[in-house]
């Protein structure tokens, strides 16, 4: 599909809100973007390869993983990232990470290699954590 500049800007703004874990429903996001929900979903998927709902879930699960790795209790994490059902949160988290949230407590393993740029493959710093001054 060919996306006009105005629609492009509005759909990108919706993505920005979802990445910021905005709690607005997809219908509300569409209304604010002055675009129909079905057109928003279709355009969003064509641009980003995922639906707004799927991106929201991924953002929440990403955040949950960080909180759990920091030792936060599962129930609090579930509520804090925006899930209302512990059951659906646990099922989604387990499917996504391969580990149940109740077992995902250890500190996040330090990535042995997070390329980030080609140069990091062959020299120090080996990843962005090492590259970032503390």
């Amino acid at each position: 599909m060919l996306i006009d500049p105005s629609t492009f800007r509005r759909v990108v703004a919706v993505r920005g809100r979802l990445l910021a874990n905005d709690e607005a429903s997809v219908a509300e996001l569409a209304r604010d973007a002055r675009i129909s929900p079905s057109r928003l979903i279709r355009t969003f998927a064509a641009l980003f390869g995922t639906t707004p709902h799927q991106l929201r879930t991924r953002v929440r699960l990403d955040r949950a993983r960080e909180l759990l790795a920091g030792g936060a209790p599962v129930t609090r994490v579930c509520m804090e990232v925006g899930f209302s059902s512990l059951g659906s949160f646990s099922a989604l988290f387990t499917r996504w990470t391969g580990t149940a949230p109740s077992r995902y407590r250890a500190p996040a393993p330090a990535a042995p290699l997070v390329p980030g740029c080609l140069g990091m493959l062959a020299s120090e710093p080996r990843n962005f954590r090492e590259a970032t001054p503390t």
């Binding site: 990535a111 997070v114 390329p115 980030g116």
Partner: peptide
């Protein structure tokens, strides 16, 4: 062309 993960927050 290498398809690199954008795990770096700066990237």
């Amino acid at each position: 062309l290498a398809l690199e993960p954008n795990a770096n927050p700066a990237a």
